[in-house]
Design a protein around this nucleic acid. Sequence first.
DNA 1: TACCCGTGGCT
DNA 2: TAGCCAAGGGT
Length: 339
Amino acid sequence: MAAIVSDKLLDWYDAHARDLPWRARPGEPAPDPYRVWLSEVMLQQTTVAAVKPYFEAFTSRWPKVEALAAAPEEDVMAAWAGLGYYSRARNLVKAARVVAEMGGFPDTEAELRKLPGLGDYTAAAVAAIAFGRRAVVVDANVERVVSRLFSIREPLPGSRKAIRAATDAITPKSRAGDFAQAMMDLGSGICTARDPKCLLCPLERDCRGKAEGDPALLPVKAPKKAKPTRQGTAWWIEREGAVWLVRREGTGMLGGMRALPDDGWSARGDGSGEAPIEGSWEARGVVRHAFTHFAIELSVERQSGAAQPEGEGEWWPIAELDDAGLPTLYAKAARLVLA
DNA sequence: TACCCGTGGCT
DNA sequence: TAGCCAAGGGT
């Protein structure tokens, strides 16, 4: 059954593979490991449509890993702005510098797994896609397809071990990269989370989930926690056509990204409401923004002709604010002030 | 393990 | 519209 499933899927992939900028067409040589790695990191929890323009921008500006390794971290962070999960950009720079120092990407799953930002999924995907290694590649698409194919009814995340074993059982010795990408294309276009297109599926006859009932009910997932709403304030401090920007520290929320000064709001609590400088503030309104596990209502206060706040920061020309690389929350706040 | 960490499209 | 979802990783 295992060989039959992988053969059917690879045949389907040869006929229906998506044409993507980071992907070789079936039968072509494997693409540059740099492009595979970059695309896989960008695609972590991120849609293909969102990734495409960023992938083009990055590979145009930094065509090789050595170029990315030589770039200032803040330039990479600014280029990543809007894509989200900014630890990916911090780790991207770290990994690029390690790889450049090594003289190239390692070509085994175990060595790739040691690079920052490469977990089980990405290490396996790069090993399989860029280097033709047999690796068990399990992402959310594979979890869904395999849960249905084998009718695994234990809820996630408890079912991960069983899903991995089942995926291992159907992963072929050769063309593991194509197999992985075929599974992802199948999950993306056919075996979708809602309303799967079973009539178009090359594995319909092999699918226990289909045979036993409604495959759309799989995988079962644990219920999600309610997300709280936090209150915070951001300060638009303006002087001579420039606004005061800081760079957020650490590895936490929006860490390493340029931002407006704020009052210390976080996922765990509201901000203090305390302004960084004296003076009279003009209320400009409230920005609402939903993060993964909480929402924020950010009040935006403005002061012009202001003194320079203490601490690190820079006066950024308002006319060039698009180049600052503000994450979406602060881009919204800026739009509110400038509207 | 459970939680933290972004964003935009879709229903 | 409010929630769900997407090629997860780090701690």
